[in-house]
Amino acid sequence: MLEINNLHVNVGETQILKGLNLKINSGEVHAIMGPNGAGKSTLSYVLSGRAGYEVTEGTISYQGKNLLDMEPEKRAGEGIFLAFQYPVEIPGVSTMNFLKAAVNSVRKYRGDKEFDAMEFLKFVREQTKILNISDDMLKRAVNVGFSGGEKKRAEVLQMAVLDPILAVLDETDSGLDVDALRIVGEGVTALRSSKRSMLVITHYQRLLDYIIPDVVHVLSSGKIVDTGDKNLALELEKNGYEIYSEAVA
């Protein structure tokens, strides 16, 4: 469902991704691991269409369509979701209103009837119950005054209500203590399904204790340099990324 071929990406004058290839099938969970500065976050932003990331070469095909032609909101409508490493605060806008605006935009794009206030309330309460998130969060302004753990749980809630086909999780484990990590990991795992693919970007193996990947890739210096199963993550934890940087050098 996702096929990235020979992707080259510049940020300003600097080349960050240098010929990245990646193929994800429907329902698979792939992890991308790599040292700082390898281009992990760049990949997540290119997939979601953020401005400032210039694709100089290569293609991204998503469900047979050229992803690079689409505006960010269209990609969201097509089922791409990015869980942000640093979720953004929107003062004065309640999480409930934000979710409703997002869900209805996406429903409209997909040709579904938009929810009215009551329908949405019912819908979102089902999701918070499954994810064990208190309704209190819905009343608070989006990410304003949230702890690190709360922000990431709110991202998981957004993912649940938007029901994506491809979820990209950018360093979802950053800033979380062990308990929060477990809660978020379990939340994500609850959202695994045969119709949903996931790309889990992380620096550390620890998140993968909770979200068990089907495939693990190592991203170093802008390329995928190794691919294996979940055991690859454990080896990386033991040996670090040094062997790859030597290989590239």
């Binding site: 969201a76 003062p91 806008v93 934000f98 935009s105």
Partner: peptide, 20 residues
């Protein structure tokens, strides 16, 4: 960008942020 990634068009995002 955060709003647009969630499917909200740029104009709707501005209205949402300003309303907040």
């Amino acid at each position: 960008f955060y709003c647009r990634q969630r499917g909200i068009s740029e104009e709707d995002a501005v209205a949402l942020i300003v309303n907040g």
